[in-house]
Amino acid sequence: MSIPSHAVFGAPCWVSLIARDLAAAEDFYGGVFGWEFRPTRLGKDFSVAFLDGAPVAGIGALAGSLAVAVAWTPYFAVDDADATVARIQERSATVAVGPLRFGTGRAALAADRDGAVFGLWQGKVIRGWGVGRDKSPAWLELRTRDAFEAAIFYAEVLDWATERPGSCQVSYENGSVVLRQNEDAVARLTGGATEAAPDPQIRPRWHVHFYVPDIDYAVEQAIKLGGAIASQAVTSQTAGAMGSAEQVTLRDPDGGLFTVTTRTNK
Rank of each mutant, 00 (worst) to 15 (best):
D134N: 13
D134G: 06
D134L: 10
K135M: 13
S136H: 08
A138M: 05
W139N: 04
L140F: 10
L140N: 03
L140K: 07
E141C: 09
E141H: 07
E141I: 07
L142K: 08
L142T: 04
L142Q: 05
R143N: 14
R143G: 14
T144D: 08
R145A: 14
R145E: 14
D146G: 06
A147N: 00
A147H: 01
F148V: 11
E149I: 10
E149D: 14
E149Y: 00
A150M: 08
I152V: 14
F153M: 02
F153P: 00
F153S: 01
Y154G: 04
A155Q: 11
E156I: 02
V157H: 00
V157E: 00
L158A: 02
D159L: 09
W160D: 00
W160L: 06
W160K: 04
T162P: 07
T162Y: 02
T162I: 07
R164I: 08
P165I: 06
P165Q: 07
P165E: 11
P165S: 07
S167D: 00
S167V: 04
S167T: 14
S167P: 05
S167C: 09
C168G: 05
Q169C: 03
Q169S: 10
Q169E: 09
V170P: 01
V170L: 15
S171A: 12
S171I: 04
S171R: 11
Y172R: 08
Y172Q: 08
E173A: 05
N174Q: 12
G175Y: 09
V178M: 12
L179T: 01
R180A: 14
R180N: 11
R180Q: 12
Q181T: 12
N182Q: 14
E183L: 12
E183H: 11
D184V: 13
A185Y: 01
A185E: 03
V186I: 15
V186H: 01
V186Q: 00
R188L: 11
L189I: 15
L189Y: 02
L189F: 15
T190W: 11
G191C: 07
G191S: 15
G191M: 02
G191K: 00
A193G: 08
T194A: 12
T194R: 15
T194G: 05
E195P: 09
E195R: 15
P198D: 06
P198K: 10
P198F: 09
P198S: 13
P198M: 08
D199F: 11
P200Q: 09
Q201T: 08
Q201Y: 06
Q201M: 15
Q201F: 08
I202H: 08
I202M: 13
R203G: 02
R203Y: 03
R203T: 05
P204V: 00
P204M: 01
P204D: 01
P204R: 01
W206N: 04
W206C: 11
W206R: 09
H207P: 00
V208H: 04
H209S: 10
F210Y: 15
F210K: 02
F210I: 09
F210N: 01
V212S: 10
V212F: 12
V212H: 10
P213W: 10
P213K: 12
I215N: 03
I215E: 05
I215L: 14
D216R: 15
D216A: 15
Y217D: 14
Y217R: 14
A218V: 06
V219M: 06
V219T: 04
V219R: 13
V219C: 03
E220K: 13
E220T: 12
Q221E: 10
I223S: 02
I223A: 06
I223M: 10
I223R: 13
K224R: 15
K224G: 02
G226H: 06
G226C: 04
G226V: 03
